[in-house]
Each structure stands twice: as structure tokens, then as C-alpha cells.
């Protein structure tokens, strides 16, 4: 492994369309500050993790869904306002880009199999593939 490869990081992009704006970015921006911290801490590790090491504890390739959609998992958060189990659905870009594209983010608690969330992600992916939507650099600050 060369040093350039070690130093480079994954790029995270977000779904954007004329109809919905930047729904994942808006969702993320609206989360409580400490919840955003938890998500950023996990993404910070993933950002420097080689693709082969993206594993089930924090990532699910959603093979059963039959497409390219996958999900990033976050540890459950329980605080005075309730319990939160966040998921971000997305997909990998072409390998040479080393990017992961966010399609949908949500608190899936208490649902076990979030069919609705996956359906939204699939629809948005279709819009991107049809060039009805695009991607924007995801702002973590």
C-alpha cells in the first residue's frame, strides 16, 4: 500500500433534486448536535477505512435488496427524548472515485426491516440514474 493511498479518504456525497432539494443534508442538519457528533464519529472512521473493511457491524450491503443500495449503521442512542437508531442508505460510486452517495437518512427505530426507507433510497437512485437528480458534496459542519 503506498502512502498516497493511505492518506486519501472516502468522499461522501448527498442526493439532490429540484423537487426535494437536499433531503439527506436537511435531515442531518436538523438532528440534535450530539446525535450529529455520533454520526460524524462513525463516518470519520469509515472515511479512512478501506472498502474491504466496511463490514456488517456498521455497514450492510443489503444483498437481499438485489440492487446496489447499501446502508451505514450507527449505534443506538438513548437520551431524554427517546431512542434513536440511525441509518443512512446509499451506494458506492465508481471505484476510482472512492465515494459513497447518501440517498436517504432516518431514525428507523422501532422498525426492524425498514422497507419504506429502502424504497425511498431506491427511488432516489433511479432518479439519479435517469439524470433527474444529482449529487452534492455532503457538508458535515
Amino acid at each position: 500500500m503506498d502512502s498516497e493511498e493511505q492518506d486519501c479518504k472516502w468522499t461522501f456525497l448527498g442526493f439532490e433534486s429540484a423537487k426535494e432539494g437536499k433531503p439527506v443534508q436537511s435531515w442531518f442538519n436538523g438532528l440534535p448536535e450530539d446525535h450529529r457528533d455520533e454520526i460524524k464519529d462513525r463516518l470519520g472512521i469509515l472515511q479512512v477505512t478501506p472498502r474491504a473493511d466496511w463490514e456488517e457491524l456498521f455497514f450492510d450491503p443489503l444483498i437481499g435488496e438485489g440492487g446496489i443500495i447499501s446502508e451505514i449503521r450507527f449505534d443506538g442512542i438513548t437520551d431524554s427524548s427517546g431512542k434513536f437508531v440511525y441509518r443512512i442508505y446509499g451506494y458506492f460510486g465508481p471505484e476510482e472515485e472512492e465515494s459513497y452517495k447518501f440517498l436517504h437518512g432516518k431514525n428507523k427505530y422501532p422498525i426492524r426491516n425498514d422497507r419504506h426507507g429502502k424504497a425511498i433510497a431506491k427511488r432516489r437512485l433511479q432518479e439519479i440514474q435517469n439524470e433527474e437528480a444529482k449529487l452534492h458534496p455532503f457538508d458535515m459542519d
Binding site: E4, K40, L43, G44, E95, E96, E97, E98, M140
Partner: peptide, 13 residues
């Protein structure tokens, strides 16, 4: 594999 660009860290100082 070469990457075209490096992305800034998620957490800035």
C-alpha cells in the same frame, strides 16, 4: 489504485 482527489476529514479542527 490511485485516487484523483483527497477529501478533507469529516472533523475539522
Amino acid at each position: 489504485m490511485k485516487k484523483p482527489n483527497c477529501t478533507p476529514s469529516i472533523w475539522t479542527e
